[in-house]
């Protein structure tokens, strides 16, 4: 190993420690947020789905709730697959 690659590998290690610090800050910020020790996502999903099925006839298992954490920004993404347009139409006639 040459002297330069020695220093290069040192620098690489420092970078990886910085990555570790950043990852920890993000993950801990979110874990500390729910200090009451309750993960609210399953409940949130259930309650949202309860509202959605009142309006649309969907299969609740086709819903995806995602919490993306990125720095100090969190986005909650709710993806619900609606039935095909024609079955939606049939639905409307029936109800």
């Amino acid at each position: 190993m040459s002297i330069t690659s020695f220093f290069r590998s040192r620098r690489k290690d420092k970078q990886s420690a910085e990555t570790a610090r950043d990852r920890l800050q993000i993950v801990l910020a979110h874990e500390r947020m729910s200090v009451n020790g309750d993960d609210f996502l399953p409940r949130l999903q259930r309650e949202i789905m309860a509202v959605v099925v009142r309006y649309v006839d969907i299969d609740p298992s086709q819903a995806v709730v995602k919490l993306e954490k990125d720095g100090d920004l969190s986005t909650l993404e709710i993806e619900v697959t609606l039935p095909k347009a024609d079955s939606l139409g049939v639905q409307r006639v029936a109800s």
């Binding site: 996502l41 399953p42 999903q45 259930r46 298992s61 995806v64 993306e68």
Partner: peptide, 20 residues
């Protein structure tokens, strides 16, 4: 770690589907 939404216990307790 930033993509964990549901976990093993959520699945066991029926709060999430395995594929979620």
């Amino acid at each position: 770690e930033r993509r964990v939404v549901f976990d093993l216990i959520n699945v066991i307790q029926g709060e999430a589907k395995l594929r979620q």
